[in-house]
Computed example of a mutant assay.
Amino acid sequence: MTQVLLIGAGNMGFAMLRTWIGMEGHRFAVVEVNESLRQRAESVGAQAYDAVSDLPVDLAANVVVIATKPQAVADAVADSRAVLGQDGLLMSVAAGITIDGMRQYAGEGPAIVRCMPNTPAAIGEGMVVCCASANARSSDRALALSLLSAIGRVAFIENESLMDAVTAMSGSGPAYVFHLLEAFSAAGVAAGLPEDLAMTLAKQTVFGAAKLALASGADPAVLREQVTSAHGTTAAALSVLMNPEVGLAVLFRRAVEAARHRSLELGAE
């Protein structure tokens, strides 16, 4: 039986917990200082506590998952040493906090897997990118994969310096898509459509296009060209969206770089 301790049951922590709670061969305990969040964790079947010091004295965690705000990671990792064995696994989903940053509080024993999930994990459609410490064994990676696969697609990278770019893209990315839906829908309203219809068209169009891109495996540029007739309506719209100076590609590069820079700052704070 694998004992998992989740520290932090906010939006991301609870999204993972709600998916994990039914997994066979696992027990889940939660540490959450916020009473309402603690009660929410208990409502799905987890044992929830106010602090690590309140855990049962015989609780020994095989895995500790840190899902706190970045500023609280150091304390959470340090507290976890009381319940995580030397050969245990420490996982973190906090933005910007490096493996070395956690190592100074975790000690030399535990393997560390730094992860960046995103909010579609709440419906099992997340994207999770992980980087493992040098002492992580294949069994540690497999255990992390088994937990994280329950909330979406999982990829491992070896170069941890890429995690800030991952954070900027898939970690923050759902917000970009939500804003795209807002702007897309508002454009439809400006063109004369009722608000509810415009939003439905925006949501289903984005969903369907993304699903087609995943299912087909084709280069999105090829799919775009297949929709675009010369001198047609799509070409007219793309002439605006693909403007080399102020188009969508320029905005996305600026947005992702701003998020990547902030991730670097968080890691340094």
Rank of each mutant, 00 (worst) to 15 (best):
residue 249 A to D: 15
residue 180 L to D: 08
residue 206 V to I: 13
residue 93 V to N: 00
residue 136 A to N: 03
residue 7 I to F: 04
residue 24 E to T: 15
residue 87 D to W: 01
residue 135 N to W: 08
residue 192 G to W: 10
residue 163 M to L: 07
residue 210 A to M: 14
residue 238 L to Y: 10
residue 196 D to A: 15
residue 168 A to M: 04
residue 226 Q to S: 15
residue 152 G to E: 08
residue 173 G to S: 07
residue 194 P to Y: 09
residue 25 G to W: 12
residue 136 A to W: 02
residue 216 S to N: 13
residue 116 M to A: 01
residue 210 A to T: 12
residue 121 A to I: 03
residue 75 D to R: 11
residue 96 G to Q: 06
residue 8 G to D: 04
residue 84 L to V: 09
residue 170 S to Q: 05
residue 247 G to W: 09
residue 123 I to K: 08
residue 62 N to K: 11
residue 184 F to A: 04
residue 46 A to Q: 02
residue 203 K to D: 10
residue 185 S to L: 03
residue 172 S to A: 14
residue 39 Q to A: 14
residue 63 V to G: 06
residue 111 A to W: 00
residue 140 D to A: 04
residue 195 E to W: 11
residue 190 A to W: 06
residue 201 L to G: 00
residue 122 A to G: 06
residue 81 R to W: 02
residue 87 D to R: 08
residue 193 L to M: 15
residue 39 Q to I: 06
residue 54 D to K: 12
residue 51 A to F: 05
residue 146 S to K: 05
residue 239 S to P: 00
residue 16 M to C: 11
residue 194 P to D: 13
residue 28 F to M: 06
residue 171 G to E: 01
residue 226 Q to E: 14
residue 127 M to H: 02
residue 167 T to I: 13
residue 54 D to F: 10
residue 79 D to F: 01
residue 29 A to N: 10
residue 44 V to G: 04
residue 194 P to G: 11
residue 234 T to C: 10
residue 69 K to N: 02
residue 53 S to W: 03
residue 207 F to R: 14
residue 16 M to T: 00
residue 22 G to I: 09
residue 241 L to G: 11
residue 195 E to M: 12
residue 37 L to W: 03
residue 179 H to T: 14
residue 71 Q to F: 00
